[in-house]
Amino acid sequence: MEKQKYSRRFFLGTSSMAAALALVPSGIKAFYQDLKTRLLPVKSIQTLSLIVNKKTYTVKADTRTTLLDLLREELELTGTKKGCDHGQCGACTVHVNGERVLSCLTLAAMVQHQPVTTIEGLAEGDQLHPMQQAFIECDGFQCGYCTPGQIMSAVACVNEGHTHSVEEIKEFMSGNLCRCGAYNGIVESIQKVAR
């Protein structure tokens, strides 16, 4: 059941809750803001230690920095993309402990000392991961912006064993949006690797 944590519906649920909060009267909103500042770690710059793509990074960062912003701005690993910053689009998907995680909804401080894999760490040297190769061969992308997130999700989808049918693949990939509509190619890519 651990994997359910990262299901699409979980994130759609939480982020539409956040959206709903944006619409509530200002008194409640102020209360929520207040609550948020109490619950979140205090505003401070701390030294964070992260293991990304088998390499250890020690960086000074605001403890509220998301894993996504930290990867992109501090570690200069820009392969992980920002599409919505609200867990809606999946472009920021990375692996933490081998499981897919939306890095825009994850604070960097939460994943210290845990192995994080990004799209840059998927290949073994010059040897592309079979999923990367499949995306190239099956035209699993168009503009390519959502592609790193799609590939990270696709690898997890195969590892989770959710590839028994086209419908199952589509269901378990539905957290990753592709505005260009390369869905057919993405499904083919996953089928190719799962076979």
Binding site: T78, Q132, I136, G140, P148
Partner: peptide, 27 residues
């Protein structure tokens, strides 16, 4: 033909506008 931008777009090395990064650059 398979696409020539396939490798860069599948290994994270393709640079989009949002990925542009220089030392000293501010957001």
């Amino acid at each position: 033909k398979n696409r020539l931008d396939g490798k860069a777009k599948s290994d994270g090395s393709a640079i989009f506008g949002l990925d542009v990064h220089f030392p000293g650059m501010l957001i």
